Simulated assay, not measured.
Amino acid sequence: MSDEPPIPPTSFSAELVDALNSSSPKQLRDIATYAESLSEHKEREAHPEESPDQDDVEEQPDELPDDVPAKATITIKEINNNRYYYWQWRDGDQIRSQYKGPVKLNG
């Protein structure tokens, strides 16, 4: 990995780049999770005839951290070619996520 910061896409506004650059690593992970969820939502809205892909969602999580509600499910998100588990739940009109850990491959 390079010690140089990544170059933002040219389509990003200066305000967005400044906001991202001033964010903490945890905030950036939350932003990435939210952006992924939002893009999936917008894609579903654009193609309502397609059913959502449920392969990456476990229906009944085993054990929940104290700050994650019982209705949360585990979702797998791919970020920069790496796969991560996130607890995810709806809170009113918003989707909340909390990092759980990396997906470990068997074998």
Rank of each mutant, 00 (worst) to 15 (best):
I31D: 00
D30K: 08
E58C: 09
P69T: 09
S37K: 09
S97E: 03
Q27L: 09
E4T: 08
M1V: 06
S97L: 06
V103N: 02
R96L: 02
K100S: 04
K77V: 11
T10Y: 09
R83W: 12
A32K: 07
K71M: 01
D66A: 15
M1D: 03
K77S: 05
A70C: 04
L105I: 07
N82Y: 13
S97D: 02
Q98I: 04
E50M: 13
E4M: 09
A46P: 02
D91T: 01
W87I: 01
A32G: 10
R44F: 08
A14P: 01
L105T: 07
L16F: 11
S2D: 12
A32C: 10
R96W: 00
K71E: 14
E78M: 14
P48K: 12
S51R: 14
V68G: 04
E43F: 08
K104C: 01
W87L: 02
I31C: 07
R44S: 07
G101N: 11
R83Y: 11
G107K: 10
S23I: 00
L28R: 15
D3I: 03
G107M: 05
S37F: 14
P102S: 09
D93W: 07
A70P: 05
N82H: 15
R44H: 13
F12I: 00
V17M: 07
K77H: 09
Q27C: 03
W89H: 05
P69Y: 09
I79V: 14
Y85G: 01
K26E: 12
E45D: 09
K100G: 00
D3R: 08
L28S: 06
P5K: 14
N21V: 03
D91F: 01
S39A: 15
N106Q: 12
S24L: 07
S39R: 15
I76L: 10
Y86D: 03
E36F: 14
S37D: 12
E4G: 02
H41S: 10
K104I: 12
S23M: 15
P102Q: 10
T33S: 15
N21A: 15
D18S: 13
I74F: 03
Q54I: 10
S51H: 13
T73C: 08
L38F: 06
S22I: 01
P8F: 13
M1N: 05
A72Y: 07
V103D: 02
N21R: 14
D67P: 06
Y84H: 12
Q60N: 13
L105S: 06
Q88S: 14
E45I: 05
I7P: 01
D3W: 08
L20G: 06
P25N: 06
I31Y: 15
E49S: 12
I74L: 15
E58W: 07
R29Y: 04
E15C: 03
S24Q: 10
D66S: 15
E50F: 08
D93Q: 09
